[in-house]
Amino acid sequence: MSVDFYCDEVLSGKTPVNKVYETENVLAYHHTRPFYPVHIVVIPKRHISSLITLEDSDTGLLVELLSVVKKVASDVVSEQGACRVITNLGKYQDSKHLHWHIAFGTPIR
């Protein structure tokens, strides 16, 4: 069984994070091992494997997630002038928990 970093570490509180924004169902925080100078992760607080495993019943959560992604991305664009919004699927998705990266700058590693 694989470890779900977001459920097992972040949401459990085992790994402390620097929160950017939070709602009842969504958490945005600074990446614990950033790849970019500005690197924020947005996750649902409930386990969902990926964007393509969302159920029709998850529509409300998806809207809330995208609302948080929009807010955080807008803040980064206001501060930095640009950003990337990325979600990975399949072999590109290391952590099998739905999440978005909001990033600015040249990769630092």
Rank of each mutant, 00 (worst) to 15 (best):
Y29K: 00
T15Q: 09
T53K: 13
L65K: 05
K45R: 03
L89N: 14
V3I: 05
K45G: 06
D4Y: 06
V38T: 15
S95F: 12
K71C: 10
L54S: 03
H47A: 09
Y6P: 06
L98P: 11
H101G: 03
I48F: 10
V17L: 05
K96T: 12
S67M: 09
V38A: 01
K14F: 08
I52N: 14
E64S: 08
V85H: 07
G81R: 03
A73M: 06
G13F: 03
G60A: 08
I86H: 05
S78D: 14
T15S: 11
C7K: 15
G60C: 09
P107W: 06
F104L: 05
A103M: 14
L51Y: 13
L66M: 15
G60W: 04
V63G: 13
V77M: 08
D4L: 06
Y36A: 10
A28S: 03
K70V: 08
V72T: 01
W100G: 02
K19S: 02
A103T: 14
V85E: 09
Q80R: 15
Y21A: 12
V38S: 03
Q93V: 03
P107S: 09
A82D: 15
L89S: 14
G105Q: 05
S74G: 15
L51P: 10
H97S: 08
K19G: 04
G105C: 07
R46N: 02
H47G: 10
D58R: 12
G60L: 12
S57A: 06
F104N: 10
T53S: 07
V63D: 10
V77I: 13
V63A: 14
L98I: 10
H97Y: 07
L65P: 02
N88P: 01
V10L: 08
V41H: 04
G105P: 10
S67Y: 11
I108A: 05
V72M: 02
I40P: 00
V3E: 08
D94S: 12
D94M: 12
V26C: 04
K70P: 08
A73N: 07
A82P: 10
G90E: 12
P44K: 07
K71E: 13
M1L: 13
N88R: 02
G60R: 06
K70Y: 07
C83E: 01
P37L: 04
K19M: 04
A28G: 03
T59H: 13
V77N: 06
N18K: 13
V17Y: 05
W100V: 04
